[in-house]
Write a protein that binds this DNA or RNA. Sequence first.
DNA 1: AAATTTATCGAAAGCGCTTTCGGTGAAATG
DNA 2: CATTTCACCGAAAGCGCTTTCGATAAATTT
Lengths: 337, 337
Amino acid sequence: MGTIYDLAKITGFSITTVSKALNNYSDVSEKTKAKIVQAAADMGYLPNAHAQSLSTKRSWTIGVMFSEANEVGMMHPFFNAIIESFRKATEQQGYDLIFVSRNLRNRDMSYLEHFQHRAVDGIVVICSDQMDKHVQELIQSSIPIVVVDMDSTDCSVVFSDNLSGGTLAVNHLYELGHRLIAHIAGDMTIDAGLARIEGYKQAMDRLALPIPDGYLINGGFFSVEEGKQAMQTLLALPKRPTAVFVAGDQMAIGAMEAIHEAGLQVPHDISVVGYDDIDMSKYVTPKLTTVRQDTERIGQHAAELLIEQIVNKRRVMTTDIIPVDLIVRQSTGPVKP
Amino acid sequence: MGTIYDLAKITGFSITTVSKALNNYSDVSEKTKAKIVQAAADMGYLPNAHAQSLSTKRSWTIGVMFSEANEVGMMHPFFNAIIESFRKATEQQGYDLIFVSRNLRNRDMSYLEHFQHRAVDGIVVICSDQMDKHVQELIQSSIPIVVVDMDSTDCSVVFSDNLSGGTLAVNHLYELGHRLIAHIAGDMTIDAGLARIEGYKQAMDRLALPIPDGYLINGGFFSVEEGKQAMQTLLALPKRPTAVFVAGDQMAIGAMEAIHEAGLQVPHDISVVGYDDIDMSKYVTPKLTTVRQDTERIGQHAAELLIEQIVNKRRVMTTDIIPVDLIVRQSTGPVKP
DNA sequence: AAATTTATCGAAAGCGCTTTCGGTGAAATG
DNA sequence: CATTTCACCGAAAGCGCTTTCGATAAATTT
């Protein structure tokens, strides 16, 4: 593949000139630039990224820290959608994503340490666990960073308008005539979960609807299984809700399963609205009514925010809230008379 | 964060000794090693990966090329599951994954070029498109490589036993009494799709079942939408099948939707068995009977294969086939009398 | 006591690249 | 024609690390 030294030897110029020619410096004539570029093409020359990084202190890599909360790794559909759009946006600017692990050849180091070791230009964390020690460490560091789906005043964050999302869901159910509306919530340690709870409460309050005991139930960490269990608890209530707003699609799918297993029908007996609009939502039966998060926009905006910090070399600490939409499908319907 | 030069200054040893101490060379006394290690810990020293790579010609990174065929990017659940298990296995050995894009700061280069530029130690390609020019280029290169879910005699490959998978599905349906068994196939340009077709054909042949015209239908590239369309075509057939083996879960979900929309019931009117056992399969209604691919094992095995090539510095060209299982759920049932 | 080993350390080169700072000769200016 | 400017190029230092090859002093061996 060759180095600039080979190129210098072949063309007869110095490595300085070769480097300059390849990097479009102005102080090299068009003629010699052409020769060098040609020679580079001929030998299939490619600059060594490590050498470049070493010398420029710019690696053109972005480290991504992924949630490993509920062990889903890279299989979380919502996070995945965000990462995907983030990737598209960053790659357009020439960055590569690097997924680091915590153990560097047997030593095991923190994520921050690992990112420092790899000398990433920036970090994106997509992790819902506010309290995670590693996340905090990353935020406190001086590496450009953007955090998704989590709140923080110490760095750039971007997340959905969960408050409105909750309200949207409740209002929709209200308009369908429902008055007994329960909420299967995400764990309170998770910002998104908390905000949706708040949205739910505010909406109920505004509609002058009481929240009966047991109607606000913790669904844990957004898994299908936990959603199912929460719904079972709800079904066992003396006064069963006619509708339930679930803080995540996967949980909602679990909830629907519980309902079906109890011999009831969605939406005939109970309406359910989810949150996220993951890919599968439109394919489950019945198709899930849900609050769509704009993963495309979240990922892209996060990318912009991060890159801006990288190129301008200054930290920005904005919190950007991305609007959500209610997608009405078939899991919600009018309340039974 | 500091460099070995700082460490040398602080401890009073040469950078050579510092480096050796940090890398456990035998020709440095325990005492000085202790001092140096302690100093390193104190200042939070971390070696610069780029400098190390430059000097050792080993980057401890693995490049991953992901399918971009049907634009799903990182959102393909099956590929994702594999990557996840691959990641776990490689990270344990100290490797980081880097997802490269094709355009390096405005120039746009091939994947191979990009990988060379990043000086990855190895490559994993998870892409079903056999003919992809970039994939071929990667395979022909001298970088250690492993390919997943695709056949090739020119490199290490690992994929599921798609032949048996097809047979498994057909036999299951046969045992339920079905004789009119159709197959919604993956595109023939995709190895996995082709093998499943072959499995289907062989099984049908062995059971002395004819394959009526139109019973073998191309479902394209495994999307829900395409599966749905294929099923609609199948439903319009004069002699409608009583069971259908679908080459992918997402297509199967689409197929079920088509069936339901036609006013028919799964499995009462038509049985369907999918392929992959993606996460959602057990949550759709009815829960999908499917051929499970062992993503865990595929990813891990691919990792082993790749790392072995990296450390032994020699190419191995094995093709390893991972067994599949039939997971019987509720989308298949006895044929109507 | 002389000759060898052994243990411990460091100088220096090298990995491939960027960037500063001068140094040419040619063109432009007076 | 003397002087300034300009266009073009290269020497050299530096990025942070590894690794070879000696060098030295201490420990062993004869």
